[in-house]
Write a protein that binds this DNA or RNA. Structure first.
Length: 391
RNA sequence: GGUCCCAUCGUCUAGUGGCCUAGGACUCCAGCUUCUCAAGCUGGCUACGCGGGUUCGAAUCCCGCUGGGACUGCCA
């Protein structure tokens, strides 16, 4: 830095923000006016270090994505490189770090494009004065990710924490896949692409130039297809954080299963897993789909209960008949299916209507995994007990 | 205000002068299937911002306009 100073690339400045502002008036050139550039100030208690931007000419950023972008030196002000406190600022620190690490590619958001010429200028100055010449890195400025208002995604206002997506049950591979689709697309018509193919096919040069909207809907869909493509074993394995957080290495923040942990039965879950795997788009949906298996009693959704059981004479009659039939019938999905259907017919209800009160009595909900398979897993005794409880 | 970037369906995009009466995916709508919910299948709606050029021919090249965005700190 001393060398940079000696050679005139840097100079001390004691102007305050107000002074700079006052001098500027209606002047249209932005930023600092270079007031102290030739004052040869010595370092003082309130002197910041500024970079003396070359007077004429321009600096061209060779951007891998956007091509050459030219910045006239006339519009680059003498920016501060170190605070009066001595703290080195981003522009310089960044360049120094990148030189130390021999960075070959600087890949960042488009918002950094305007300050890239400053960094190049700094880099060149350092090459000339430090005795260490390192090649200027390749720059690539990625398009911004924007929200529905088409504004740059903000840490404060927008849901950008990847942990949050992970906690909700987005699979990392689906998330990476989706992100890759923002601003880039695979060669074929298939958008689902695994990481190794992505690595092989991705070219910075092919990245689009325009901002992209982060569409959770599409992410969700993609996540669903990834979940469905998991092998049953893999699905069970990856469901662990949501069904058995106490035994998994990781689980969502402040997450608790809807059932007492000691009630969880891995063997039983293994049997239900395939039933839920194809009907969810988020791993986080699993607990609500299987909770009735691990709760002592069926959960009760009052609205659903009132609607399908409490206010329906027929529903109650169906349930009563079911208790009788279930006591003697073969306990397999096919038989149960037929039984519910015939009991329904007895009351002039089709299967669609007849299954509703039964589902509600057992699961507490109107939607869930396939009913008859669930009954088989739940068992005859528990099934009958829950129906009786509902009556 | 200044500098820079950007501009194809609602969204993400394919498209690099003729293969485009513009393709795919998500969303939405309709239908099929169906024990609920999904999934799946079939079909449908919807786009090259505007105006000038260049060219036999333009979504594709050039200019202007309009629109959007980023940056404009002794923040990063």
């Amino acid at each position: 830095m001393a060398e940079l100073l000696d050679r005139g690339y840097l100079y001390f400045c004691d102007c305050t923000g107000d002074q700079v502002q006052a001098r500027k008036g209606d002047n249209k050139t932005p930023g600092y006016d270079g007031f102290c550039r030739d004052r040869a100030l010595a370092q003082g208690p309130r002197t910041a270090l500024r970079f003396a931007t070359p007077v004429g000419g321009s600096t061209v950023v060779h951007d891998l994505i956007r091509g050459d972008v030219e910045f006239s030196h006339g519009v680059i002000d003498d920016f501060v490189v170190a605070k009066s406190s001595g703290a080195v600022l981003y522009a310089l620190a960044n360049v120094v770090d990148d030189r130390n690490d021999r960075i070959s590619h600087v890949i960042r958001g488009e918002e950094h494009l305007p300050n890239t010429p400053k960094q190049i200028l700094l880099w060149e100055a350092l090459n000339l004065t430090s005795g260490l010449v390192t090649p200027i890195p390749h720059y690539a400025h990625l398009p911004l990710l924007v929200n529905e208002q088409r504004k740059k995604l903000s840490k404060r206002k927008d849901p950008v924490a990847t942990e949050m997506y992970r906690d909700q049950g987005y699979l990392p591979e689906a998330f990476v896949n989706y992100l890759a689709l923002l601003g880039w697309s695979p060669s074929g018509e298939e958008e689902k692409i695994d990481v190794s193919t992505l690595i092989r096919e991705f070219r910075l040069e092919d990245v689009s130039h325009s901002p992209a909207f982060f569409d959770v809907k599409k992410l969700l869909h993609l996540n669903g297809t990834y979940i469905r493509e998991l092998s049953p074993e893999a699905f069970i394995e990856r469901a662990q954080p949501w069904v058995s957080p106490s035994t998994s290495a990781w689980s969502p923040q402040e997450y608790q299963t809807p059932w007492p942990v000691e009630n969880f039965d891995p063997e039983l879950f293994g049997r239900v897993a395939p039933l839920v795997q194809e009907r969810i788009a988020l791993m986080g949906e699993i607990p609500a789909m299987v909770d009735f298996f691990f709760l002592a009693d069926a959960p009760r959704d009052d609205d659903a209960f009132t609607k399908t059981i409490a206010t329906s004479e027929v529903a109650q009659a169906v349930l009563r008949d079911l208790v009788e039939e279930f006591a003697a019938v073969n306990w397999d999905a096919e038989t149960l299916h037929a039984t519910v259907m015939s009991v329904g017919e007895r009351h002039e209800w089709n299967l669609r209507k007849a299954q509703a009160p039964l589902r509600c009595a057992l699961t507490g909900r109107l939607v869930g995994p396939p009913l008859f398979e669930s009954l088989v897993i739940l068992g005859r005794e528990e099934t009958i007990r829950r129906i009786e409880m509902a009556l």
